[in-house]
Design a binder for these strands. Sequence first.
DNA 1: CGACATTACTTTCAAAAAGATAGTATCACT
DNA 2: AGTGATACTATCTTTTTGAAAGTAATGTCG
Lengths: 147, 147
Amino acid sequence: MNNENRYENPCPIARSLAFMGDTWSILILRDAHIGLTRFDQFRKSLGIAPTILTRRLTTLTEEGLLEKRLYSEHPPREEYLLTAAGRDFLPMLFMIGAWGRKYRGEGKLVRFLDAETGIEIQPIAVDEVTGAKIGTRPIRMVTPDGD
Amino acid sequence: MNNENRYENPCPIARSLAFMGDTWSILILRDAHIGLTRFDQFRKSLGIAPTILTRRLTTLTEEGLLEKRLYSEHPPREEYLLTAAGRDFLPMLFMIGAWGRKYRGEGKLVRFLDAETGIEIQPIAVDEVTGAKIGTRPIRMVTPDGD
DNA sequence: CGACATTACTTTCAAAAAGATAGTATCACT
DNA sequence: AGTGATACTATCTTTTTGAAAGTAATGTCG
């Protein structure tokens, strides 16, 4: 897909997808949230070809979701840490996971618990204003053309 | 990416991404939520090549997110409607959009209002159990290996 | 001191997927 | 009979992906 003019797209979904709309990027972000930081950790976890990992990490870094930090001077070695924007990806990961659990949940699955209560987290999207679950109230879309 | 054995993957995120982890599929689902149903509507809205649109619609239909319905017998014409699983994609779309609005929100953007109150929807992900925003409480991951 | 290991890549090339363009099939309408 | 709408398919070129091997800088062990 051509991503050049995705930034003129008035849809916020298309804007997000412009650079992270592929499986590897999302999986890298997932691993980063779990705590992986290094090239070889991502490579082994994902079974991804190093060429592609390099490209994805570069894009994710350029787009401000990851940042490189030197963790050793001799030899020079860098690791990839989540930025604030990258950390804000967590709700998306949870919603993607919630769908997968509901509709593709056969067999054994990883589970995510609230560390304090030990109860499995059940992620839902709500409107912070009304408190209602997304999808339970009618929505109106407003295009910016008329402004 | 190789999606063959993604179903043995214990990560629910990977399971979701196995078949909808590309930009076109998510954008098709977005358009379907807006109300588009026909091949040419999707094609014009997305500017997608017909070869690829065919493939994506087929996959989405096979995976149970869309279903075909005959809307004309002569000539035989089918349209694509969201299934329950497809409709359950909406929270994901809203979270993807929320991130884009926050971090790639320059210029004009489409907005989504609560149809009754007219107030812009602010989607957040929360744990239905604790009511806490996702990311504000520590999380514990449990792998299914020990079962 | 030299051989091997570690980490983070890059190079090369074959295979798969995407994308552009044109064409086809089935009708309705005039 | 000719034109148009709709939903594709066929063909071909370009781009991306993926596999495999190689490289560079340095640490470690005997």
